[in-house]
Nucleic acid binder design. Sequence first.
DNA 1: AATGAATGAGCTTTCATTCAT
DNA 2: TATGAATGAAAGCTCATTCAT
Lengths: 212, 212, 212, 212
Amino acid sequence: MKKDNFPLKKQPVQKRSVFMVDAIKQAAIRILKEQGLAGFNTNSVAELAGVSVGSLYQYFASKETLIAEIKRDHFDELRQLFKQASESLTSEKLEGVVVKFVDASVDAHRLDPELHRILSDELGNFEVVENDQSKDSLKNAIEATLYRYKAQLRDDLDIPSAAHLSYYLVEKTVHDTVINSKSPENTDKVIDELKIMLTSYLCKRGVNAEVK
Amino acid sequence: MKKDNFPLKKQPVQKRSVFMVDAIKQAAIRILKEQGLAGFNTNSVAELAGVSVGSLYQYFASKETLIAEIKRDHFDELRQLFKQASESLTSEKLEGVVVKFVDASVDAHRLDPELHRILSDELGNFEVVENDQSKDSLKNAIEATLYRYKAQLRDDLDIPSAAHLSYYLVEKTVHDTVINSKSPENTDKVIDELKIMLTSYLCKRGVNAEVK
Amino acid sequence: MKKDNFPLKKQPVQKRSVFMVDAIKQAAIRILKEQGLAGFNTNSVAELAGVSVGSLYQYFASKETLIAEIKRDHFDELRQLFKQASESLTSEKLEGVVVKFVDASVDAHRLDPELHRILSDELGNFEVVENDQSKDSLKNAIEATLYRYKAQLRDDLDIPSAAHLSYYLVEKTVHDTVINSKSPENTDKVIDELKIMLTSYLCKRGVNAEVK
Amino acid sequence: MKKDNFPLKKQPVQKRSVFMVDAIKQAAIRILKEQGLAGFNTNSVAELAGVSVGSLYQYFASKETLIAEIKRDHFDELRQLFKQASESLTSEKLEGVVVKFVDASVDAHRLDPELHRILSDELGNFEVVENDQSKDSLKNAIEATLYRYKAQLRDDLDIPSAAHLSYYLVEKTVHDTVINSKSPENTDKVIDELKIMLTSYLCKRGVNAEVK
DNA sequence: AATGAATGAGCTTTCATTCAT
DNA sequence: TATGAATGAAAGCTCATTCAT
């Protein structure tokens, strides 16, 4: 649906340039968050960044490239968080795994909820070419983890479907809960319920009680 | 986040007008689905509708108003489906209720998946003033239903949180599953798992087996 | 080297439109003549035409299309002049034919010398798709005419080469002479010499004397 | 029609500078030939020359100055060729003179036909201030030569007009023939005819046969 | 009421030129 | 002097909206 986007037109080697690229990205993010895709245009971005349009185009081949960069950056951060959560998994009980994954998801969505909203929804099918393992890799990671903890799973569980479902359940519920959250306590409550739901769905016995 | 949108500039009272308004909406929907928000502009809509731009502006105060109308219409339809599902609930078992709700959601998302995708994602925070029962009303209906079937629920269940969670679980999972569905069978499988998940989360005992 | 150019985006049916298209073309021609291709831009053209840019684009798909239109119009006029000269040829002597062709060329280049200069030189390889018989057809017409008057030609004349050469001789000499002419008398003198040159080159005997 | 262009902002006295100026000119010529005036911009030129834009502006006051330099250089070369041809004229017959001049013209146009095309056509009225002997000097040289060979000329020949005409005839015909030449043989044929034409126009008797 | 030609602000992008390093 | 990052005016084109017919 969308086209080209090579990472960067020109690598910013000098400090001044690094600073500029960053200023441009920050401005772009701010406009995206405050005005949505509709209010996003290269002139405003450059102005807000305190930079000339020309400079913007020195580092970003097009408006699309700039957006793609931002999207990639954001999802790279998310992926990072999950990777860390994943690596910190010791041979514990499945319940603990669930908790860690959900918490990682919450943390990820709290990085910048409004930006995340725009990037996943408004720009949901704006394709970023690159190393786009993000979504799939996460789903795959979940599937792999489920296989690893197979012994603790309900016997009749169809693991691929369960992975798919768990992924959407967590991703979407956390996403909307964090974004539309009215109060932090409320969010916490829903997140806790989410953990219970997942656990009761996946685990052999209703060992839900210990989750919290 | 967005501005004006009074329901209708002028109520189309004459038959011909009703026809025009409809033609415009149909054309708008088609363009939205085929070209996304990016390809959507009042001139094309009018042309596709076989109507002059002037006429479009006779019935829709602005581009935004037209989109708002479409969004409202679509979500009204969805709500309608749920209302029917809700009303057809007889004093059955909770499992049956869950199945009915999920199926209603699937039906709703199958009304026009691509349109739904654009309206909920691309135009996700495009606000429609509306008699806003839609989202909340659905969540409220779920909550009310849960209270009605309290006896069959897990004792320690926090009903408001459960309603919220159930709503997001169903809405988002079904949405993404229907929209990104690769094969119908696959979709069915995931939907079945969804029912099991919900049931195992809500119900006193793991009576999941009977769900299908 | 250049791309698309469909005649007109939209046929100007109403009088107002015809007027507009014409005003735009006139303005475009004036700018082309006064500022050359370098100073030619759609905003200026529209402004000079007393019309909005939008209107310009309503009738001309692009800057290029507008230029192509003008080029086509101009060369159509030229072709017309030659056609008339061609048709007025009675079975006279070759000298008379030469005179008529050269005069037609002079008239053609006098239609709008500066415009002609820009269209043939600066925009020389800006390709106009359409019925581009202009150049070739003229050369072919000359060749055909030479065959018709073969009896009066020098015996050893290679007609295709002679046609090619005559074409360039007349076209280029007249072109430059008219455009760079310092005084009308001077131009006339050169044109007369040109007729003599052509005649003495083509004709069996040096009957050049009668040319004037 | 165009503005400023002082010969050189600064005389490149040091060896390295001479080298730079040359590199820039070569790059400019290459771009002009490969991409035409449209693709010509100082940034690309500098890059292709392996030099910074800043340096380009150290030696050329503006884009126009650079083009002017190139144009002057090219026409200086042409003039040189003619000067040599002119000087090599011994007291021969007029026919030989004609042949030498035409051949010199052909050689001149073959120096760099594509560059020549752009400089004379696309940049035809791009004015170079120059010590302008170029065009006129050539025409004057022809006129002088004709006076020198007056005895062999047709009695009724108006020498100034004949010089003017001969100049255009040769210049334009050769130019177009060399540039649009489809095959070398074809070009040679036309060039031969050109010599015949000129000779039969200028000389007392139709001694065309000996030309080749 | 309906039409659709006309408008022009606004957006993306380019490129000649400058100037801090 | 050389560099090349930065500038910003300017150009091509679109499209929401108006208004004369």
